[in-house]
Computed example of a mutant assay.
Amino acid sequence: MSRYAKAKRYALPGTLAELHGPTSGVVSLPARLHWGPDSRYDLADNGDTAVMYERVIREAVTAQDLADHLDVDTLQRLWHHLIIPREVRDQWQAQFPELHTGRDQAP
């Protein structure tokens, strides 16, 4: 467990219903969320979508970043497959117990 992950403040939405991000097409994340060479994610590809969600959840500094880039149904489908720090997963699940369900869903 890194000290950074323990100390970092992660953004959380007020409700999951606020998450109204795109569900299709190719998404380009802003530099504040993805500073690498290729910030495009094809939402038709489950792997791309999962990596984008991981980045947004880890790097968002505002609830608006989350609302603009995450979709509630997609988040619930992918939640247990996302590779995110334990601290952020615990924060989200404490705020949104409904994320505990759906473990057996495929990504």
Rank of each mutant, 00 (worst) to 15 (best):
N46V: 14
T15V: 06
A7E: 14
D73F: 00
V27N: 08
L12R: 06
A44E: 14
I57N: 01
R86V: 13
Q95T: 13
H34V: 01
G36M: 08
A63M: 01
Q64S: 07
I84A: 09
M1I: 06
E54N: 09
G47W: 14
Q91T: 04
A94R: 14
S2V: 03
P37S: 14
W92F: 15
K6S: 12
D104T: 11
A94F: 02
L70C: 03
L29Q: 11
R86F: 05
A44N: 14
P85K: 04
L78P: 00
Y53P: 00
E87W: 00
A5V: 01
G47T: 15
Q95A: 15
Y53D: 02
M52F: 07
Q95C: 09
Q105S: 11
E98L: 08
L43M: 11
D71I: 00
R40E: 07
H34T: 00
V61A: 03
R58F: 01
A50E: 13
Q105K: 15
E87H: 11
I84H: 07
L33G: 10
H20D: 10
P97N: 04
D104N: 14
A67L: 00
L82Y: 07
R32M: 01
A17R: 11
I57D: 03
H100D: 12
Y4H: 05
N46W: 14
G21W: 10
P22C: 08
L16G: 09
D71E: 10
G25V: 10
L12Y: 00
L99H: 03
W79V: 04
N46C: 05
D90H: 06
R77A: 03
V26G: 05
D71W: 02
T23N: 08
R9D: 08
K6W: 02
L70K: 07
T23F: 13
H69M: 04
A63T: 03
V72W: 00
D73C: 01
Y10M: 09
Q76S: 04
L78Q: 11
P37R: 12
V51M: 08
I84N: 04
A106E: 14
L16E: 08
W35C: 13
W79N: 00
A7W: 12
D68A: 04
A5G: 01
H81W: 13
R55D: 11
L33N: 09
W35T: 12
W92R: 06
D45A: 01
R3S: 10
